[in-house]
Nucleic acid binder design. Sequence first.
RNA 1: GGCCCUAUCGUCUAACGGUUAGGACAACGGGUUUUCAAUCCGUUAACCAGAGUUCGACUCUCUGUAGGGUCACCA
Length: 436
Amino acid sequence: MINTKVITRFAPSPTGFLHIGGVRTALFAYLYAKQHDGIFALRIEDTDKVRSKEEWTDGLINDLAWLGLKHDVFAKQSERVDIHKSYIKKMLDSGHAYISKEKVVEEGQRDEVIRFKNPNKKVTINDLIRGEVIVDTTDLGDFVIARSIDEPVYHLAVVVDDFEMGVTHVIRAEEHLSNTPRQILIQEAIGASRPIYAHLPLVLAEDRSKLSKRKHGETVSLTYYKDKGYLPEAILNFVALIGWNPGTDQEIFSLSELIKTFDLAKVQKGGGIFNVEKLDWVNKKYIEKMSMDEFTAAAKSFMPENISAKLLPLIKEKVSKFSEIKPLFETELSFINPLPAYSFENLKWRQEKDLVNTKSYLQTIIDKLSTASDFSKESVKAILWPLAEEKGKGNVLWPMRYALSGKDKSPDPFIISEILGKEETLKRLKHAIQNI
RNA sequence: GGCCCUAUCGUCUAACGGUUAGGACAACGGGUUUUCAAUCCGUUAACCAGAGUUCGACUCUCUGUAGGGUCACCA
């Protein structure tokens, strides 16, 4: 069979959510296929009937779609048992496998399974990332390849499916490296060609252990980051940089740029920690790149109801992920709520001795703004700027801003004025003066 | 424990025998700014250890150490 078309696959088991390491594995397999004008297959490994669930399968498919990693081919292992079965029979007939009587020690165990007749030899793997790895398969023993004739176990199913689907490159996480020898043994037994292997370094948690649901909880799931309001492109970009880099200073890559630039030969051997701070930075870069419309649409479900469109630019430049939006309304953007009680001493700019000047500045501001017809931030600024220049910007602008927000931190007073409107702005300024 | 993999700033990494060991995130300091954020500039910070090989090792070899993965009728 001469087939030079590259076929890669991502083969998760539907026993849980897609986790962040899986995202990178899928991405790399996808990138490799796409850059070689090949095919990216998604195969659901659901041979474990007890643990596999339909909802997880749906979740996996949805997550990958959300990320934009479109598969060209889809397969479910459970629907391929006839194929597996025929190979099991072949192996039984050829003596590569045999039916083994078992001692039942645990509940649910069978007294009869199908075991592989291990030739006990040395297997050499030529891994694209790790180079030559030699393993003696003797200590694997005669491992189980099927619970019964139509219940294949993972290793058998993987080998058969990869072969039957024409997978040319098996790109998967390093945890599978030690599984590879036994899979190669099965390949040889059924006369399958050997795919090219590339075992990716692990994505690690802060403590340098493998990211696992049991140990690290929900923070390992893609959903967690989706719900926090990270962008799919940013997640892909960030995750690509764990274990790979282009050798240049470029850090921000679109998916199509990744397809062009990605190089399996430049993939790291050692595991890399998933560093959320850097994810935040990457995500912020993507938010910066968005247009106002794109931002508004993307952040919609994270926004409070009915907010002024004028707040949007302020929000966009402030957050690094959408989950930061809501808290903003408790702090910097709280001026849109009714004015809180505040200490009027705070109206005094740090360079002022007392509130005497402050009071007169506020009065001047009120006078000037009372006659304003245009209350846009540009207009308000134009009206007040000469005064601020003359009396000192902090002396004038700080009390104004404080009177309008009642807070130490807020956007500048011109923006607040525009959003509050003339009436409310003047009301708040007068409120300040009356209490000095 | 057996087998396997790995080892450069706190983190992600560059270097492919000769560099003041580079970049990014974070941290810290400063400029700008009415505040915060943003932004700009700068600083701190690393070759796991020991033997070789070599005129010369972060780069090659060996040993040690450390970390990780895997040892299912789970994938």
